[in-house]
């Protein structure tokens, strides 16, 4: 059953006519994802690759096509507006891929959408994949930029702040014949739409998820909060990894949110909290699947 996305979820793409958005829309279509609409203001009536109709706005695109989820590839200065438009249109899931949205914009977005029925994933994230059962996991639902073929349908949930580190974990699982229920990249920004904890709660309630891999990195305290909840409430085995043990304090390590500031957000503190919660923490990034297999 998976979380957030089912193989038949209908998806629309905001920013479908940009080169980045277009390329990944094409890859999602090839993966078998139901991409039913694109949105680019001013380009209504056109089609993407002769198959996907383009609309001026999200509300009409959703109304005409039945899309319930959106992927946002809109450039950073306009991305907050795109998110708010998707939320206002009542979509169930909005996945913001865009990297580089100003923090202030996201503070406003997060405050504005509190209490709405929409779940926001990202920004600055690789997206969400629920693998399909065909060859190379095709036939699944892919929103975002993750490579589809590394996945395999199964019952392990993956949640991570990093893109390529997620692929690394997914690939390790697939190579060990462990498929995934859903893989969620929550993104590397300091103001994320969803946190590790939000996603872990969904995995915990999902009957088709048997175990969880949680990948974190320096900055903030989201991993500690998730660990605390897992200790008290999670009834599934959780393995994890934290990147940034060697990161110098006060420097932003690529991701806007990956920074140790005022002595807070260190890898040591996160690993300690996770171990105290009974999470199997991988010593190196090569051992993420192994760390989970030990406790399955």
């Amino acid at each position: 059953m998976a979380i957030l996305l089912k193989p038949d979820t209908k998806v629309l793409i905001q920013g479908i006519t940009g080169s980045f958005g277009g390329r990944h829309t094409q890859l999602s279509l090839e993966y078998g994802t139901q991409v039913v609409a694109g949105v680019t203001p001013g380009k209504a009536g056109q089609t993407f690759e002769d198959t996907v109709p383009i609309f001026d706005g999200v509300a009409e695109a959703a109304r005409e096509t039945g899309a319930t989820a959106s992927a946002i590839f809109v450039p950073p200065p306009f991305a907050a507006d795109a998110i708010l438009e998707a939320v206002d249109a009542g979509l169930e899931l909005v996945v913001a891929i865009t990297e580089g949205i100003p923090v202030r914009d996201m503070i406003e977005v997060k405050a504005a959408i509190t209490g709405s029925a929409t779940r926001l994933i990202g920004p600055n994230c690789p997206g969400v994949v629920t693998p399909g059962t065909d060859e190379d996991s095709h036939g699944g639902c892919r929103i975002g930029i993750a490579p589809g073929y590394i996945h395999k349908a199964g019952d392990i949930g993956v949640v991570s702040r990093s893109g390529t580190l997620t692929y690394e974990a997914v690939w390790q699982l697939t190579c060990n014949d462990l498929g995934q229920s859903t893989c969620v990249g929550i993104g590397g920004d300091p103001v994320p739409g969803s946190t590790h904890l939000d996603i872990i709660k969904l995995f915990n309630d999902d009957p088709d998820t048997r175990g969880i891999i949680m990948i974190g990195e320096i900055g903030g305290s989201a991993e500690e909060e998730a660990a605390e909840w897992i200790k008290a409430n999670c009834n599934k085995p959780v393995a994890g990894f934290i990147a940034g043990t060697t990161a110098p304090p006060g420097r932003r390590m690529g991701h806007a949110g990956a920074i140790i500031s005022g002595g807070k957000g260190t890898a040591e503190a996160k690993i300690a909290a996770m171990e105290a919660a009974g999470i199997s923490v991988a010593e190196t990034p090569s051992q993420m699947a192994e760390a989970l297999m030990k406790i399955l």
């Binding site: 991570s160 390529t164 580190l165 990195e217 060697t246 990161a247 190196t284």
Partner: peptide, 29 residues
């Protein structure tokens, strides 16, 4: 390395095996 998380994790792996990273470098996705 490509990707910030993987780049940090690579530095950590170097340290784990007794080396010292000279840099963090994310060449982008």
């Amino acid at each position: 390395v490509n990707g910030a998380g993987l780049a940090m994790a690579t530095m950590d792996a170097i340290k784990h095996y007794g080396g010292e990273p000279a840099n963090f470098l994310d060449v982008g996705g």
